[in-house]
Simulated scan of single mutants.
Amino acid sequence: MDKQLNNAVAQAMRESARKAILPRFRLGEAIAADWKSAGEAVTVADRESEAILSNKLGRLLPGVNIVGEEAAHDNPEILSHLSRGDCWIIDPLDGTGNFAAGKIPFGVLVALVQDGLPVGGWILDPLTDRFCAAQANCGATINDEIFHVRSPQRSRPQVAVTQLFADIEMRTELFANLQNKFDMLDSPRCAADQYPRIALGENDVTLFTRTIAWDHAAGVLFLNEAGGRAARPDGSPYRCEDAHAGLIAATCSILWEDIAGNLVKAGINLKGAAQDL
């Protein structure tokens, strides 16, 4: 693993949290937010964090394209970088809705991508300073310590489900079909929380519909390199350019296959179930 790269990315992410995010967060106190679209909040913390990260990462690997969540909202053309060449992907404040309401969880996500596939993934929890890192074929670390998934020993695995289903009836049907075998939970809107939660064994599985690159590229790589499994419902690898193909993330391949098989039997397709970008 390239420790120099890890350290540089960690420094940039911690600086963005220290300068842009933490000074504005008070538990239980809401702050002003704008709305990019229905349910999509943005704050000054998002914008300042992205500016810091774009500057730092741009200097770290000169010439590599940068796709930040806020920049992509302003200029969707930059999304073309997700499928070709090298690019940084930045989610400057994942879980903005929680953050703006004075709630947790929220985090910062950065990924490095080559031709649509994540090759580097980093996740920072600003409140605890937990730093998850992974590089392709090099394993995963938490706070610089080698890390492997902690598979829980529950008799009934816990399955968290995104609340971003455009079709509520489909989500209700999913719960009905799985709850006899699994304990079903609502997933808070924060991928930066969900991927470490799965890896640490706090949840067993999370089902996603909308899979935008800045939410998932880092976490998919981290979970896979830590020994879990994150893949499209048909078993194909996650690619950054497809935001609506659905995703199953699990602590292990056996549980992943169990969930995927149950979805097929129930006729539930995560693909296309998400809201628009």
Rank of each mutant, 00 (worst) to 15 (best):
D2T: 00
A8N: 12
V9C: 07
R14M: 15
A20R: 03
F25C: 08
R26E: 11
R26Y: 11
A30D: 14
A32G: 13
A33R: 04
D34M: 05
A41W: 02
T43E: 12
T43M: 11
A45H: 10
D46A: 02
D46K: 09
I52T: 03
S54G: 15
L57P: 04
L60E: 11
E70H: 00
N75D: 15
P76D: 10
I78N: 13
L82R: 02
L82Q: 03
S83M: 03
S83Q: 08
R84Q: 15
G85F: 01
D86K: 06
I89F: 11
L93E: 02
A101K: 07
A101H: 06
L109V: 12
G116W: 03
L117C: 10
L117Q: 11
W122G: 07
P126Y: 09
L127Y: 03
T128F: 04
I142V: 14
D144M: 05
R154Q: 05
R154F: 09
F165N: 03
D167A: 09
D167M: 14
I168F: 14
T172F: 06
E173D: 15
L174C: 13
D186A: 12
S187V: 11
P188L: 14
A191Q: 01
A191G: 05
A191E: 07
Q194E: 11
Q194V: 05
A199R: 00
F208R: 01
F208L: 05
T211K: 09
W214I: 11
V220E: 10
L221T: 05
F222I: 01
A231I: 13
A231P: 07
P233I: 09
A245M: 09
A250K: 05
A250M: 03
T251P: 13
I254M: 01
W256T: 08
E257Y: 07
L263T: 09
V264P: 10
V264Y: 13
K265V: 05
G267A: 10
I268E: 06
Q275S: 13
